[in-house]
Simulated scan of single mutants.
Amino acid sequence: MSSKLKTGDIVRCTFQGLDCDGKFITSQDGMATIKLASGYNIGVPEESLVKTGTYETAERKVSEIVQKADLPKISIISTGGTIASEKDYRTGAVTSQVHATDILDAIPGLASMARFKAVQVCNILSENMTPAIWKLLAQAIYDEIKEGARGIVVTHGTDTMAYSAAAMSFMLKTPVPIVFVGSQRSADRPSSDNTMNGLCAAKAALSDLGEVVVVMHGTTH
């Protein structure tokens, strides 16, 4: 039955005494992953699922944002992380937004501070960061500085952000601020700290610092 399912479909699972509803996420090798109302994911046999409904959502509207040519340029380099992400309500998963328009739409106020260019190095959980990716990140930062960026903002998961920032401080000699920033909640949640952290990171990226720093919750480290 699950071969006909699409991500976000509402399903009922009946398996070994389990009788519950959830949202279908994906399936592989005969096993399906569904998200329960509690927020937890479980894996169950595909044949145990029956579609009971379809999740409907309005088309996402992105604001039309005009970047001002006379403002200084900040390059936002994305490695993943929560700060520029939003929840996919079909599945409950959080997905990264890597385009400048998405980031400016997610963090009001940035467009009045600078022009932004978005660069994606990777899209990973920060616990999966490796020295090989550090090399790619350092090269991307170097390239953006060489192209005239006034400052660099690196969006990064919080688990290993300090390690990556330390690595960049040893790998790069920089004439401009290189600011690592993250958040604890995605942009669509009322409790999100992404706006405060994003604005503070942009402010730091426009400062006269010539080093690598971490900015979180109004504090520069």
Rank of each mutant, 00 (worst) to 15 (best):
V179Y: 00
A201Y: 08
R12V: 08
F116H: 04
R90H: 13
L199A: 00
E127V: 15
L110T: 11
R90C: 01
C122H: 07
A167T: 14
L36G: 10
K23N: 13
N197F: 02
I42M: 10
G109L: 07
A205P: 00
A69V: 13
G148E: 03
A140C: 09
C13H: 02
K35Q: 15
M161T: 06
L125T: 09
K4L: 11
A187Y: 06
S186A: 11
A114F: 07
S186H: 13
E64H: 10
G92S: 05
H99G: 13
K87W: 04
A111Q: 15
Q16H: 13
V179G: 00
D70S: 10
P175F: 10
I124Y: 01
G22R: 03
A165D: 02
I77G: 00
G109I: 07
R189T: 14
A162G: 07
M216Q: 12
E59D: 11
T220D: 03
P45K: 07
Y89M: 11
P131K: 10
I76F: 03
A165L: 09
I152M: 01
A132W: 01
P45L: 10
P175I: 02
S75A: 14
K51P: 02
Q67C: 07
F116Q: 06
E127K: 15
S96G: 10
G39T: 09
I145M: 05
T57K: 15
A114N: 02
F116C: 08
S112N: 04
